[in-house]
Design a protein around this nucleic acid. Structure first.
Lengths: 213, 213
DNA sequence: CGACCAATTCCTCATTCGTGGAAATGATAT
DNA sequence: ATATCATTTCCACGAATGAGGAATTGGTCG
């Protein structure tokens, strides 16, 4: 006599497969990238991603299996480190610091690069497993290839100092949002960082010489 | 007839105040400092601190009221920024970069300073409110006083760049544990960082000059 | 048309967390 | 001694979370 379960909840969408093209998977990844980048791994929740993507939370498990696998699927390095270093060093030692600074800043100007960077850093801070992954990736894929092109003493230390400066820049600019750095222009930062990168690459680390004035 | 409630749980300690001196409050703070520094704000739990301190979880609320207040109680800056800067700059411009590097590294060599630094950074990454607090503290108490002593153009930018390098060093050395940096000695890092600090303080930020060779 | 599979929704479970109530006990002051 | 207060223990609540079961619907292929 009663209509069977219809009208019980006016907002209740019908179950089953939606007609038309299904962008659900991509919507989830897109929203997950945003939230992991903005909130970090721990404070980002499956339900929050689902809400932001306009999707049932169950879809995330359906497509990705777990929160960790979803996070892994959101990571995209927008360049190939070894190829990028080769191109950067192809121009010789002259101007190498500026080219590195330009390259790093341009990666961080791109929303994808910026989100990936902050996302990975935040995850490394809150998840030990992520920190281990970051350590391996940074060391094997970024710092060692960079160090290999630095034919100087303490090559790995030099690469690590550059990495530390870059990480600090990301933290100060995007995570803590220190005004002088978040307001500085791309060009200002390139100019300010260029001498530091050149010093870390080629300078005499064991002699506290003055560095320009 | 039955012994009243005794023997029900052999491990059950008697209620009420313990005899002797009560170090509970200090035990909690001590353990909280360790865990906030090691795990960050989010992954540190009241129950975990209580377990580590050998204390009932309720004691934490009893003494501190909430997790946030407990965290606030664990923060201890082991120096007075303005006084420290005054002392550092009292020796004049010559050797100022080295003195700053020495000072920062010595603070980070001290377990208390190191724990406070990592703890605050981790909290800033995982908690927006903490990030706001860190931004204000860093800007008002550290960077502006530092900038005030830098009688050059872009004083705040210079101070922020130093701050970013220090934060990056802490991240790389203690959070991600990049080997070349965590293995480097105090002296190595002082030598490597001194020219950078001097450049950030006094160098020409708008001219990409070479910085030592 | 019928069988099969992917996509979608609803509901549930077990766990964990921060917080708080209430009672018990020792120390201390009167 | 008695009253008062701080300290301590156990227990519970409500919320949030990651994960998964089961049913329903639509596309696709025979």
């Amino acid at each position: 006599m009663k209509q069977p379960d219809i009208g019980q909840s006016p907002m209740a969408r019908a179950r089953g497969r939606r007609p038309g093209a299904a962008s659900t998977r991509e919507d989830i990844i897109e929203e997950a990238r945003r939230q992991f980048g903005e909130f970090g791994y721990r404070r980002t929740t499956m339900r929050g991603i689902a809400r932001g993507a306009g999707v049932d939370p169950r879809m995330i498990l359906h497509f990705f299996g777990s929160k960790q696998e979803l996070f892994a699927a959101t990571i995209e390095v927008p360049f190939e480190p070894e190829a990028a270093f080769e191109a950067l060093f192809a121009g010789g030692a002259v101007g190498i610091g500026q080219r590195i600074a330009e390259f790093i800043l341009s990666v961080l100007d791109d929303p994808r690069g910026q989100r990936t960077a902050t996302s990975v850093i935040r995850a490394a801070v809150s998840e030990p497993e992520a920190a281990a992954l970051v350590r391996v990736f940074l060391t094997q894929r970024m710092l060692l290839p960079l160090a290999r092109r630095v034919s100087h003493d303490h090559a790995e230390l030099r690469a690590s100092l550059i990495g530390a400066q870059v990480v600090g820049l990301i933290m100060a600019r995007y995570v803590v949002a220190l005004k002088p750095l978040s307001a500085a222009t791309h060009e200002d930062l390139v100019l300010a960082l260029t001498p530091v990168f050149e010093y870390y690459l080629f300078g005499d680390l064991a002699a506290a010489t003055a560095l320009g004035h």
